[in-house]
Design a protein around this nucleic acid. Structure first.
Length: 207
DNA sequence: ATACAGAGGTGTTCC
DNA sequence: TGGAACACCTCTGTA
């Protein structure tokens, strides 16, 4: 069966996957700018290459522009990122919520509540990216990051029948629950399963 | 050369 | 009021 291949692949990549997740946890312990950088990365990734976005954000970080740069200063760094105009604006808007954001991370008990807060308050962040962000700062152990690669794999292994054309909150939570059950059944933790699926599609364990 | 799909989707509008 | 339709709009790899 196909699942056997998945488990074989998991065993090969397990160490690297676990190391990556530890790295995410460390980001959560870091200073503000690193956490905000991670949020900006997640704002950039929709319909864009993750590695390109990562480089763009690193460059902004180095130039000390994430918190301070104007629209005109930031946009050139996103020239290879799709929808750069919108995303530049979302990054600038997100600054205003950063204080509140840190507070919510402390106060809200469940990561699902936290995720809702991000979806409802930060423009450019919906369920997929909110989960992505929380995972990248070490808080997403139980969250699914339902992008096209993950959905493709969920269909491949029969977890879902069809890949939905759009993901409403209700559908997102539904599929997330199914992924959780699958994760439990094959005994691979959610966070690790995400990285495994993603690497199966892209050949890389990234973020 | 030119066309075209794919890149870790999201916000707004309209009913 | 939940959800479909549409706008956003760039670079790269492949045929």
């Amino acid at each position: 069966m196909e699942i056997k291949n998945l488990l074989t692949s998991y065993n090969l990549k397990k160490d690297e996957i676990k190391a990556k997740l530890k790295e995410f946890e460390r980001v959560g312990q870091e200073f503000d700018e690193r956490i905000f950088a991670e949020l900006c990365f997640c704002i950039c990734t929709p319909q864009s290459k993750a590695e390109v976005c990562d480089k763009a954000i690193s460059a902004l970080e180095k130039n000390n522009l994430l918190f301070k740069g104007s629209e005109k200063e930031i946009k050139p760094f996103l020239n290879s990122v799709r929808f750069a105009d919108n995303k530049t604006k979302y990054i600038i808007r997100a600054r205003k919520f950063f204080g509140e954001m840190k507070e919510k991370i402390e106060v809200l008990k469940t990561t699902k509540e936290l995720r809702d807060w991000f979806v409802n308050n930060i423009k450019g962040i919906n369920y997929k990216e909110a989960s992505h962000f929380l995972r990248n700062i070490g808080l997403g152990k139980n969250l699914a990051i339902l992008d096209r690669h993950i959905l493709k794999n969920l269909k491949k292994y029969g977890v879902i029948e069809e890949i939905p054309k759009s993901l409403t909150r209700k559908k997102y939570l539904e599929i997330e629950q199914k992924m959780k059950e699958f994760s439990k059944r094959i005994n691979i933790p959610m966070g690790e399963l995400d990285l495994l699926f993603w690497s199966e599609e892209t050949g890389k364990i990234f973020k």
